[in-house]
């Protein structure tokens, strides 16, 4: 059953997956090449701060990757109102288990691409002894983040059906607007620390906003 479902999912997801793999591999290398040209002699601080900024881009790519792989696989289910899934001779739990496993397998490919791209990006940069490269670590974080994005997107799809994009955009808007509204009514978020629950562990957002640096101390 797994092989059969994998073949179907692969067929639906391979085009966006290929594009994401290319992006994941090219972004670190290109960004390093373009970003570090502002100074002739890059200092260690330039390297760490630039790769930390690049990490934000990779985190965003991980969110998109998880959502894209999930959407590519679940789009026929949503539009067919799960008729195909529920007509299979397996239980819903088993179906979901297979889908999740297939999702994880597919998400390994962009993570591998990020690892390769990161390794290529840092291989050409001379590093002082105090700095280290974390291409593998960043790729692993990318995998975790994309897997989490995959799970969150699966939940959103099941809860909101075809309106998933609208619901996701509304959630994002709420996240962006709430701090502004709270600031406007006089609640100081910066010093109070009450807002930190959103970005500190165990919040799921912490996986995306933690420090992702290809080159770090």
């Amino acid at each position: 059953m797994y092989r059969h479902m994998f073949a179907v999912q692969w067929k639906w997801a391979r085009a966006p997956l290929a594009a994401l793999c290319v992006l994941g591999m090219m972004v670190p290398a290109l960004a390093m090449r373009v970003g570090l040209t502002s100074y002739v002699s890059a200092t260690p601080r330039d390297l760490t701060s630039f790769t930390a900024a690049l990490g934000v881009g990779l985190a965003f790519l991980a969110i998109v990757t998880g959502a894209a792989v999930q959407s590519a696989g679940s789009w026929p289910d949503v539009h067919g109102k799960y008729v195909y899934a529920l007509s299979l001779p397996i239980a819903w739990r088993e179906y979901l288990f297979h889908r999740t496993l297939i999702g994880l397998t597919l998400l390994l490919l962009p993570a591998l691409a990020v690892w390769l791209g990161g390794w290529l990006a840092v291989a050409t940069v001379p590093l002082p002894d105090t700095l280290h490269t974390y291409a593998g670590g960043v790729a692993f974080r990318f995998l975790l983040a994309s897997v989490l994005s995959f799970a969150v997107w699966t939940a959103l799809v099941q809860l909101s059906g075809r309106r998933v994009t609208l619901v996701a955009l509304l959630c994002l808007l709420a996240l962006l607007v709430t701090p502004l509204v709270l600031s406007a009514i006089g609640l100081d978020l910066s010093s109070g620390g009450s807002w930190n629950w959103l970005i500190d562990p165990p919040s799921p957002v912490s996986v995306f906003v933690s420090r992702w640096a290809l080159i770090d101390v």
Partner: peptide, 20 residues
């Protein structure tokens, strides 16, 4: 954190069978 949230979401979804 990522593993915990992933497991929680998948477990919650497994308990909610969609209606066709």
């Amino acid at each position: 954190v990522a593993t915990l949230w992933f497991a929680t979401l998948v477990f919650a979804l497994a308990r909610r069978r969609p209606s066709c």
